[in-house]
Amino acid sequence: MAQKTMIQAITDAMAVELANDDNVLVFGEDVGKNGGVFRATEGLQAKFGEDRVFDTPLAESGIGGLSIGLALEGFRPVPEIQFFGFILETMDSIGGQMARMRYRMGNTRQMPITIRAPFGGGVHTPEMHSDNFEGLITSFPGIRVVVPSNPYDAKGLLISAIRSNDPVMYLEHMKLYRSFRDEVPDGEYTVPLDQANVTRSGRDVTIVTYGAMVREATKAADELAKANIEAEVIDLRTIAPLDMKTIIASVEKTGRVVVVQEAQRQAGVGNQVISEISQRAILNLQAPIGFVAAPDTPFPFGQAETAWLPNANDIIAEVKKTVNF
């Protein structure tokens, strides 16, 4: 066991799977000698060789198509898209091709591809680097979308993703890369895909969230506890398909829900969660479902990024509104 940052946990997961399975290939822009612009693939090329860990020419659509082709030849590609904003360049590969390959070929082919990409606000990147486009990917049936919120989950989820025979979009929040450490076991372990995690239990209200907002929600819950409001926090971990069982069990207990996402109100997966809760548990609710999300503009210019992003205070205010309804 060692204390690791999320980025170290991610590197570790790739190293474990590269060692475990010769079919695992890691590639993308600058991932080889340079070890990736965030150093997520640091040391992997030196350790596993240029056949297994390699740079590609600069073209995301190419990276998408290459992954599909390699998967058809029996490999387990783990491509990196340097920043998630550039995912728009690969949309046909993802939504038009890999997500539906199993379906269109009657379950005779599979796409065991794990696309990794850094995303998320709070680090003041230039435009198109931080955008919360995850909701776009969640709308394609056939692909799983995973967003770890801590180093332990990051490693276990990435190993599960690489072993999954379905394509997985694995999103790494940049704000979480180096902001804190966790105990991360050495060697292999998995965290199941499609299972949300109750990271804090409480009786009064359920906060459902994912990614960097798990930290904000936990901060908010600590603050609310001082006012004698006990919040349960659910970290979705996999944002598509959703683990509604865990969410509904909590809602039935607390009778109140606040859904929190960093993405714009009209984006992300919050609306999906809210819709499912309304359909399945509306009679358990003692107040309308609360929703904390960013405003409906494109991802903000850096100068007002902090004011734009939802935070613990927004969550506290929304929870109080729900509790005092």
Partner: peptide, 23 residues
Amino acid sequence: PKQQVSDFLKNTYDVQPQNIQEQ
């Protein structure tokens, strides 16, 4: 001048839809 989120909201559409007006 200090950058404000309201600047972004005003610059997203030609005619402001309801969600933008509320926000």
